[in-house]
Simulated assay, not measured.
Amino acid sequence: MSTNSLKSSRQQMMFFFYCSLLLSIFFLIQIRYTLSLDLAEWTASQYTLLFLLLSFVVICFLKYQCYSRDLKRDSQCIDLAEKKLTQKKNALYQQVSSMNPSDFGELVADLFRIKGFKRIFLTPRMNEQFYDIEMYLEDQKVLVSCLLNANTHEIPQSYLERLHLMMRNQQIDQGVFVTLSPFDADCYTFAKDKPIFLIDGEQLIETLIESSDW
């Protein structure tokens, strides 16, 4: 069960609760004005009303028990699945961060091949620490810069400026920057009005899990 399904189940339980509350109030009003304190004066319809009320209370109690048990089980399943996913992401992050820049460039290229890009060419830059990838989606040429920077340092805006300059010089309409590190805030401001897409480490790991057998 997904988080959205769990949320939907909780909403259904709340809806059932409020409906039960309204019906209980209705029964109580009926009891208040129709039942006498003297049992000898009760009619068959009054016994029936009391029986319906008690039955309703029992049914509501059992229903709440079922909802509570199911929600608890589903919550435990979701927590376990999220824990396993977190462990998988951490293990994959460690695996990718231990790659050399060349293997990281090939990994990014393979990821875009899965996405349907063709004619992918890798070009090492900056003493083979920085890889540029030229690729095509139909007739559109895309320039990708990928940097294996597996540490806590954020990617500065200057790296995006370099990518944007190369796009202008080569007349490329779209660019992508892929890294295992986070971007600083200036990068998002710089790329906001430009055809440059940013993929940080968290997005990269999630995309790898979704697009491959990792």
Rank of each mutant, 00 (worst) to 15 (best):
S9I: 10
Q65G: 03
V108R: 00
A40V: 03
P195I: 08
N127A: 06
Q87S: 11
M167W: 09
Y131Q: 06
V108I: 14
K192A: 13
E106A: 08
Y159P: 00
Q95S: 15
C60T: 12
W214G: 00
I133C: 08
I205L: 09
F190K: 02
I59D: 06
A44W: 07
L37F: 06
V108M: 07
C187H: 06
K194T: 05
F177E: 08
V176I: 15
D193L: 12
I155K: 00
F26N: 04
I155Q: 02
A91D: 14
N127D: 10
P101F: 12
A191Y: 10
T123N: 03
S68C: 02
K7D: 10
S36A: 01
R119W: 09
K84T: 00
W214M: 01
I205W: 02
E41D: 06
K83R: 15
L50F: 10
S45W: 08
D132C: 15
L22W: 11
M126P: 01
L148D: 04
F121Q: 13
C187E: 06
Q11N: 09
Q11L: 13
E41N: 03
A150E: 04
I29W: 09
F117I: 03
D213P: 00
L148C: 02
E202A: 05
C66I: 08
V178F: 07
G105M: 07
I29L: 09
N127H: 06
K118N: 12
F117G: 04
S2N: 15
K118Y: 05
L85T: 05
K118C: 03
R162E: 12
D110I: 10
S102C: 12
L50R: 05
S24K: 07
L143H: 05
S75V: 03
F26A: 12
Q170R: 07
Q203I: 01
T3V: 13
A191V: 04
D38V: 03
S75M: 11
T34C: 01
L71T: 04
A185V: 08
I196Q: 06
D79Q: 13
A109C: 11
K63T: 15
I199Q: 11
Q170G: 00
T189E: 14
Q171E: 12
E41F: 02
K63I: 14
E134H: 14
D132Q: 15
T189G: 09
T189Q: 15
L21V: 00
L198A: 04
R10M: 14
I114E: 15
C77G: 03
Y18Q: 13
L137Y: 15
K83D: 14
S102D: 11
I25R: 11
Q87W: 13
S24C: 07
S211C: 07
E154F: 06
E134T: 14
K83M: 14
E154R: 04
E210S: 06
K194I: 07
L35K: 01
L208C: 04
F121H: 13
D110E: 15
L111V: 09
I199Y: 11
D200I: 01
Y64D: 05
S211Q: 14
S145Y: 11
L80Y: 15
P101G: 11
V144S: 03
Q129F: 05
Y33A: 00
I205F: 03
D38K: 02
C187Y: 08
M135L: 15
F56V: 09
L163C: 02
E138M: 10
D184I: 06
Q140W: 04
L53H: 10
Y93V: 13
D132F: 11
T3Q: 13
